[in-house]
């Protein structure tokens, strides 16, 4: 075939080059740079939420908004009723988020209200626990769930360090795992702020890109060092979470799990997973070798004892 047009030929070569480069990069993309775990920074513009516990007034509008937008059943105690603060609550299959009240050791009479929901980890334990890939960390940030493939093993609930996912134990035919999905499908993908943040009257919830929120959180702490403890909860915990908290009271006193460390949870089982192909590859050779040695020895024994030697004798009978 005659191309005639040199620009054409050039174009085509360019295309091939690009294709080869694309192919190469798709094969080697994880290796562009180091492959250490810490080197997966997550997508730069992923979203998050900053919770400023010094601002929260415990009005529970976030709970109502969440109930509303996620079409959850009515709560046993109405959202306006402050008596719920009498005991600690956790998220459950009918409640994606709860606000709890904690006494303020520094200022009596000014309790601290703590909103709890899925933290949307950067490296979620639940995602690495799910054997059917029903849970996914979206590139946008939220961790979402696909009930269509879930088999109901509840390993995600075992693995969550924050005690967040809940299960519909009373549902016999279509039980689902329930947790906050950060309004990923219903609002974020439509360019809307998650419902809880929309309804917060004091901007105790600030929605934005995680990196911007970290700057905001740090500047608030720096500008008011007396008002905040110097810790952004979620910045480094379990490898980082999409939800970030700043507070005037140390987090251990507010029911936050304090001993989580900064290792991303998928790292905890990675080593074991690497052992699996090792066994699959090494054991057959090792055991096969043992078998061949045994077989030879037994044939020799038999030859010595004068039995007729059967070339294909195995030990199976």
């Amino acid at each position: 075939m005659k191309t005639g047009n040199p620009r054409h030929a050039f174009h085509r070569r360019g295309f091939l080059k690009r294709a080869a480069a694309a192919l190469g990069s798709s094969f080697f993309s994880p290796h562009s740079g180091s492959v250490l775990a810490q080197d997966f920074p997550g997508r730069e513009d992923r979203l998050g939420m900053l919770v400023d516990l010094t601002r929260c007034i415990g009005c529970r509008r976030c709970e109502a908004a969440c109930n509303q937008t996620s079409s959850l059943p009515a709560p046993e105690i109405p959202f306006g009723d402050k008596s719920v603060f009498e005991e600690k609550r956790r998220t459950n299959a009918k409640t994606y988020t709860v606000v709890n009240r904690y006494p303020n050791p520094q200022r009596v009479g000014m309790p601290v209200y703590v909103k709890t929901q899925c933290m949307h980890c950067d490296e979620p334990a639940c995602v690495s626990a799910c054997l059917v890939g029903a849970l996914k960390k979206t590139p946008e940030g939220p961790v979402i769930y696909n009930a269509d493939v879930c088999i109901g093993c509840r390993y995600c609930i075992i693995s969550c360090p924050f005690y967040i996912p809940a299960y519909e134990y009373s549902n016999a035919f279509e039980p689902k795992v329930q947790k906050c999905f950060m309004c990923h499908d219903t609002r974020i993908l439509k360019g809307e702020v998650p419902a809880c943040a929309t309804e917060c009257p004091v901007e105790a919830l600030t929605f934005g890109k995680r990196r911007d929120l970290l700057v905001l959180a740090r500047s608030r702490i720096m500008e008011n060092p007396d008002r905040y403890v110097d810790h952004i909860y979620g910045e480094r915990e379990v490898g980082g979470t999409s939800w970030l908290y700043i507070s005037g009271v140390p987090f251990e006193q507010l029911g936050f799990p304090g001993n989580l460390g900064t290792t991303p949870y998928p790292m905890l089982t990675r080593e074991f997973l690497s052992f699996v192909p090792l066994v699959l590859v090494v054991w057959p050779a090792l055991l096969g070798g043992f078998y061949l040695m045994t077989k030879r020895r037994m044939q020799e024994d038999r030859a010595e004892s004068g039995e007729p030697k059967k070339p294909e004798q195995t030990l199976e009978a």
């Binding site: 775990a37 690495s128 699996v276």
Partner: peptide, 17 residues
């Protein structure tokens, strides 16, 4: 591939195969 968990999912899948 942005996260470790995606990376593990992908590489382990391939390793097992």
């Amino acid at each position: 591939m942005n996260t470790l968990v995606d990376f593990i999912t992908h590489t382990k899948g391939l390793e097992y195969l």
